[in-house]
Amino acid sequence: MNPIDLDKVLRETGKELRREVPVIIRRRQDEVYAALAELPMQTRTKQKHRFKKARKFMGATAAAAIIGVMSSAFVSPIMAESLKNIPLVGSIFKLASDLGLRTAEERGLVTEPNASVTHEGVTIRIPQVVYDGSRLSLAVKREGSGLIGGISDYEVVQEGENIKQIYQRGAITDIEMFVDGTSLYDYSGGKRPGLMGNPTSDPNAFLYQLTDYSYQGEGALTMPDQFLLTAKITLEGIEEPFIIDLPVRKSTDHIVVPSGETREWGGLKLTLEQLKLTPITTDLIVNIEQSSQSKEIDPQNLLYEVWDDRGRVLGLVAGMGVYNKDGQYQMEMMFDRFEETPDNIILKPFLPVFQDPTANSGLFAVDSNGEIVKKYLKDLEITIPVESASLEKLYDIHHN
């Protein structure tokens, strides 16, 4: 399953977003900022200059995953499978099959604020947070009596052309995030971090993830190395929203690998603009220029896989694609980390096969295993050599 465009979901359901910034957030902001100084942060940044060539990469969709109501239906592809058998929110990062989050737990990169707010006998708790400069993951736990159904459950009812979402008491009906007091809903610049939600097997637990797309440029709302994150969570049947302040610091180093390597096929010119590696996330930016001969190929239909040189495919975390002012299509994709340090990282673009090939849109064709049928574009593959010593030091994982 691909990441969900939550803004689109909100538009289709006709939901109106509340835009008033609670006064309580500003009132408490200075007090909470003081806690930032007590959080650990690594600031060493390593730069590598020019890596060459190309070949494999992991399935991404050009989804603009932003803000919205979260439910068990809104699942990023790597988290849906990884959280099936996790009984306790406090152990989500440690037990997830997302190797990046598991690594964060093992290396002590996770902050455990255990911040909570209680209204009408119901408590919302945030027990764990981790931020590596690319993505921020936080767990949300619900406690209390008189709760019906799961924290992310709702029923969709269609009445003629209208679609309604029906929530039981205690279910999340709205989630709004603030970065240093600025709402992701209301940011006037338009470009902002993405927010996704992922359910767990615990009906009272949910995992949120903010992704900071670095290519958005001037005027974008970004997550700096340290900031105040405020979560405003509204539950059905509880009048007052739950407002929780969390001082956040980046807890990892990173390596930036500028590339500029290009490949051409079918009137498309693909450029790998940047590769950024943290102990948690593999972050890539690609740029696509389209000539007049390629008008029948929509750059938004071009998807990607990331592989290591042992044939292992990275799990997709999030992705966003936009057209820039020059008409070029830029896409940033975040994947899991590598299990072991590879000698080469391989970007492998492909086109999904549609059930109706003549329409070149609509539903994807799937194989007997339920996987998307793919047309790999070998001429666009890019292989990136890796300086193993630097990456091994960055990962710094000692196996027993």
Rank of each mutant, 00 (worst) to 15 (best):
E112K: 15
G311C: 02
V117A: 10
V256S: 11
G146C: 01
E387Y: 08
N344A: 12
L394F: 02
I285R: 13
V117D: 02
L277Y: 03
E289C: 01
Y323N: 10
G327W: 03
S251M: 04
K348Y: 10
V32A: 05
G90L: 00
N204F: 00
I24T: 08
I175T: 11
D7W: 15
H119F: 08
T173F: 00
V130H: 11
N162W: 12
A96G: 07
I86F: 02
P87Y: 05
D5Q: 05
I372H: 01
N287E: 15
R263I: 05
G327H: 02
E296R: 14
I345P: 08
I24E: 15
S188Y: 15
I4H: 07
S97F: 05
L228S: 02
V122W: 14
G149M: 01
K191R: 12
L270E: 08
Y395P: 08
H119C: 03
E161P: 10
A62Q: 02
P385Y: 05
L302G: 06
N204Y: 06
P342S: 02
I297Y: 09
N2G: 09
I382V: 14
K84I: 12
P299I: 00
L303D: 11
I24K: 15
G150K: 06
G197N: 10
I66C: 12
V140D: 04
S361V: 03
E120P: 06
S82E: 15
N400Q: 10
K191Y: 14
L147K: 05
A62G: 06
G190Q: 02
V110K: 03
D7E: 09
V157P: 06
E20F: 12
G181M: 01
L391G: 01
A389V: 14
E371Y: 10
E16L: 15
I345L: 11
V353M: 01
F206W: 10
H399K: 15
Q328M: 11
Q330G: 08
I124M: 13
D298H: 07
L275Q: 07
T61K: 13
F335W: 10
K46P: 04
D30C: 01
L275K: 06
T252P: 14
I163P: 14
E264K: 14
G121L: 00
G194V: 00
L314S: 04
D379I: 01
F335S: 09
E371W: 13
F338S: 07
R55Y: 15
